[in-house]
Computed example of a mutant assay.
Amino acid sequence: MGSAIESFLTMLAADRGAAANTLAAYRRDLEGAEELIGDIATADRQALARLGQAWSDLAPSTLARKSSALRQFFGFLMEEGWRTDDPSPALPRPVIRRPLPRLLDHAEVESLFARAEFEAEDGRANAVRMLALLELLYGSGLRASEVVSLPLAAVPRDAPFLTVMGKGGQARMVPVSTRAGQALSRWLELRPSGGKFVFPSRGKHITRIRLFQMLKELAARARLAPEKVSPHVLRHAFATHLLEGGADLRVLQTLLGHADIATTQIYTHVDSARLVALVNERHPLAQRHRAD
């Protein structure tokens, strides 16, 4: 029932603000399932069990994504009254272990900022721009795509907040620290005129790839391993260091723009891992073991 899939995708776009790439991924998964077992809107548990067998060679993460798409689809059918039963329990439930994000410690972040601030002292535009980018990535926890595509209209003159358009077209208010605001103001004074983006380049804005490259180059100049530094690693550092400082998980969810708090909870695992490492390194018995 192709119309059921279309209705489901329309709901995702209208009610959840799903982005085009997200909708395309759901479509591929649902239509791919139909190619294997026929009309999924009328599929029973036996059909879904066969589907699980056909997917048995897939990676656990891929299998989990496809199963999740179907579960949500059947939930939608029941809410709309198109089905009275839910066959989705017959779908596989692979156990996914989400990897802990790569992190920078406080000393590494300090080294990165020290280098960026030193280079920006003489007022060169590229160096001031780099400092402003760094402040927004680590100081506000923005995604790379949110930073590079930040419009001038998102920067208020008299309020310490940015209006950021996140995933799925969801807008959120992001606080900007005093030092980040100062770096941003310095850059706006030097920014080339014209265009609608804070960080313009060639008629549009700098790309995520160029931002990635600039951070790697800065890391090398700061004598850090370039492979350890990326926009996403700085976002992880922002979240982890805030949590270490006592930030509430719900507040962190809002700042990061996570739709599901389960995504934010990865940082509780990061903090736990840090505590275990601390005990292993600093506990008297651990030191005695090394001496032995």
Rank of each mutant, 00 (worst) to 15 (best):
G195W: 13
F197Y: 15
V233D: 05
F197L: 03
L190W: 08
H205V: 04
E189R: 15
M165A: 02
Q182A: 15
D158N: 15
M214K: 09
L224P: 01
F161R: 05
G181M: 05
V233N: 09
F197S: 00
P175H: 05
Q182P: 01
R235I: 02
G194L: 01
A220F: 03
A225E: 13
T207S: 15
G169H: 07
R202Y: 07
S230G: 15
H205Q: 10
I209L: 13
E217I: 03
T178Y: 00
E189G: 13
S149Q: 14
P200G: 02
G203Q: 00
K204T: 07
I206T: 12
R223F: 04
A183C: 06
L224W: 00
E217G: 06
P200L: 03
R191K: 11
R208W: 12
G141A: 03
E146H: 09
Q213F: 14
F199I: 07
A219S: 05
R143N: 13
L162G: 11
A220R: 14
P200C: 04
L215W: 08
P192Y: 04
K216G: 10
P175R: 06
Q170G: 01
W187P: 00
A225K: 06
P200D: 01
A144L: 02
E217V: 10
V233G: 02
Q182R: 14
E217K: 12
V164M: 07
H232Q: 09
M165N: 05
F199R: 12
W187C: 01
L218V: 09
P226E: 09
R179F: 10
M214D: 15
Q182N: 04
V198M: 07
S145V: 14
L152K: 08
F197T: 00
K196P: 00
R202M: 13
A144R: 12
A237V: 05
L224N: 02
L211P: 12
R202A: 14
V233E: 04
H232A: 04
H236R: 05
R191S: 03
A219H: 04
F197I: 00
K204D: 02
R202L: 12
E189I: 06
K216D: 08
E189L: 14
R210Y: 14
T178H: 03
K196Q: 02
E146P: 09
P200N: 04
A225G: 01
G194C: 01
V198W: 08
M214S: 13
T207L: 11
V148L: 08
L218E: 11
L188Q: 08
Q182T: 07
R179A: 11
V147M: 05
R223V: 01
H232W: 13
T163M: 14
L211S: 09
